[in-house]
Design a protein around this nucleic acid. Structure first.
Length: 391
DNA sequence: TCGTATT
């Protein structure tokens, strides 16, 4: 029950104007695209940690996503022991190290709803790496993430860094986080930097251990949801459009939200925005269409109990599951994707299926992606009908 | 002016 409430709140919050760690495109990428390179031979080459997962993503969805790469030995979504809420990260252990490497290469940076997930090798579990996260305040507003890292890197290996920014203006709020590899490194950084002035700064900074995430209470979220003005005053359309042209936009959902604002304006057609901002990287070779042409017909959406099954047609022969995750993931909870392949050639037969949990998200995905140009192909996307069943 | 990274 609580989880449903939280999920509903997340849905609401996800309609906000910005995505996590995407206020600065390049900064966010840096933060998410540098898998931890252990450099120790005893480190696992099969076990991955996955960070920045959507709040409502389940362990089953995590397994489904990463299982599309290769056989999984084990998979765990970490949840709060008391509330059961997802803590937004999990572990995936593959059978084959090559699949782990492939998962990093293909899934790191994947956008799911409002999140950009990070996929990297898990460090060996140890007490020494826990509670190594620092909260830093009083930073000069001009300080960049890189400069912040330079300041702290003298005390140890930095796992993540972040500077919080104003959601509207994008300007630094003067506070940030530094996560070290070891807690002892974080302790030394506090000793060395708390109360000190960074080079060129006029005010000293405060460095302390960050709050423990488990201390968060749901009341704070509820208060945030109901009292904060979730609506930002919309910037002029051209100004917003610039965000998409400069690739700083982060998700299909953002494109869709923006497209609603621009409805009817020919320069801001959704397919154009998607191709501009989403950058689905594929130039699939042409393919002869054989069969599957009689799709027009009964159009009764198929609800299979486990979710809403969506039919995707006109995929290229080399299409794989990851492209379906990339396209549909931003719209909401995706529980499963499947590319239908020829048994002998292992090439995609031109279609696949996507299962989504929520009707409205599935409907939005269909409305947005039907007719979407993927490479040189125009996709047909609809709810799966009985017609697609073949005995 | 505190987001959610070690099972």
């Amino acid at each position: 029950m609580l989880e449903q409430v939280i999920a509903a709140m997340e849905t609401q919050l996800s309609n906000g104007p910005t995505c996590n760690n995407t206020a600065h495109g390049s900064t966010a990428i840096n933060n998410c695209s540098s898998p931890v390179d252990s450099g120790h031979t005893e480190d696992s080459k099969t076990n991955l940690i996955v960070n920045y997962l959507p709040q409502n993503m389940t362990q089953e969805e995590l397994k489904s996503l990463f299982g599309s790469i290769g056989e999984i030995e084990s998979c765990k979504l970490v949840r709060d022991k008391i509330t059961g809420q997802s803590l937004g990260y999990g572990f995936v252990n593959y059978v084959d190290p090559k699949d782990a490497e492939k998962a990093i290469n293909t899934l790191n940076g994947l956008r799911l709803q409002t999140k950009t997930i990070k996929v990297s090798y898990a460090r060996p579990s140890s007490a020494s790496i826990r509670d190594a996260n620092l909260y830093v305040s009083g930073l000069p507003k001009t300080m960049t993430q890189k400069e912040l890292e330079q300041l702290f890197s003298q005390y140890g290996r930095i796992i993540t860094s972040r500077i919080l920014v104003d959601q509207v203006t994008g300007v630094s709020r003067g506070v940030g986080f530094i996560r070290f590899d070891k807690r002892i490194e974080a302790e030394e950084a506090i000793k060395g930097l708390n109360g000190q002035k960074p080079p060129g700064a006029t005010e000293p900074i405060t460095v302390k251990f960050a709050n423990n995430p488990s201390q968060k209470n749901n009341q704070a979220i509820l208060s945030q949801l109901y009292h904060s003005p979730n609506r930002r005053y919309p910037a002029p359309l051209a100004q917003q459009a610039q965000r998409f042209r400069t690739k700083s936009a982060c998700s299909l959902r953002e494109c869709i939200k923006f497209q609603k604002l621009c409805f009817g304006h020919p320069s801001f057609r959704l397919d154009n925005l998607l191709n501009m901002a989403y950058g689905v990287k594929s130039r699939f070779p042409p393919m002869t269409i054989d069969g599957m042409t009689s799709l027009a017909g009964i159009n009764i959406p198929g609800h299979a109990g486990t979710g809403w099954c969506i039919f995707v047609y006109n995929l290229a022969p080399d299409a794989d599951e990851s492209i379906l995750w990339q396209m549909f993931g931003p719209f909401g909870a995706v529980t499963n994707v499947k590319v239908i392949r020829d048994f002998n050639t292992n090439k995609c037969k031109g279609f696949g299926f996507v299962t989504m949990t929520n009707y409205d998200e599935a409907a939005m995905a269909i409305a947005s992606l039907n007719g979407y140009r993927l490479g040189d192909r125009v996709l047909q996307v609809s709810f799966k009908t009985n017609k697609t069943h073949k005995a």
